[in-house]
Amino acid sequence: MSTPFDWASIVGLCGTACIIGAYAYLTLAKATNPFPLHGTNLLGAALLTISLLVHTNWASLMLEGFWASIAIFGLVRAWHRRPSTGEPT
Rank of each mutant, 00 (worst) to 15 (best):
L42K: 02
L53A: 12
L42E: 01
P88Q: 13
N33P: 03
P34W: 02
I19H: 03
A24D: 04
S2H: 14
W58I: 09
T40N: 03
P83A: 12
G21N: 07
G21D: 04
T89S: 14
A68P: 01
L75R: 00
W58T: 07
T32V: 13
L53N: 10
W58Q: 09
K30V: 04
M62Q: 15
G12I: 00
A17G: 12
G12A: 12
G39Y: 03
N57Y: 13
N41P: 00
A59C: 08
N33S: 14
T32F: 08
G12E: 07
P34Y: 03
N57Q: 10
H55R: 11
A17D: 09
G21P: 05
I19F: 01
G86K: 11
W67E: 07
R82F: 05
M1W: 14
A22F: 01
R77T: 06
D6H: 04
R81C: 05
P34S: 02
N57P: 02
C14W: 15
S2E: 13
P83F: 04
R77I: 02
A24L: 14
W67C: 11
S69A: 15
A71N: 08
C18M: 06
A78F: 06
A29T: 00
I19M: 10
T3L: 14
L75N: 02
W67Y: 14
L43P: 02
L43R: 02
K30M: 04
G86W: 07
T40S: 10
W67H: 05
A29V: 00
W67M: 14
N57M: 10
G15T: 05
G86Y: 04
T89H: 11
S51M: 11
A45P: 09
N33C: 08
T40F: 03
S51C: 09
R81I: 02
G21H: 11
S60N: 13
A29I: 00
I19A: 03
V54F: 15
I70P: 06
A71P: 00
D6M: 08
R77S: 11
G21I: 02
Y25S: 01
C18N: 09
I20M: 08
L48E: 10
T49I: 09
L37S: 07
M1N: 15
W67T: 12
A29D: 02
G39P: 15
W7V: 14
S60R: 08
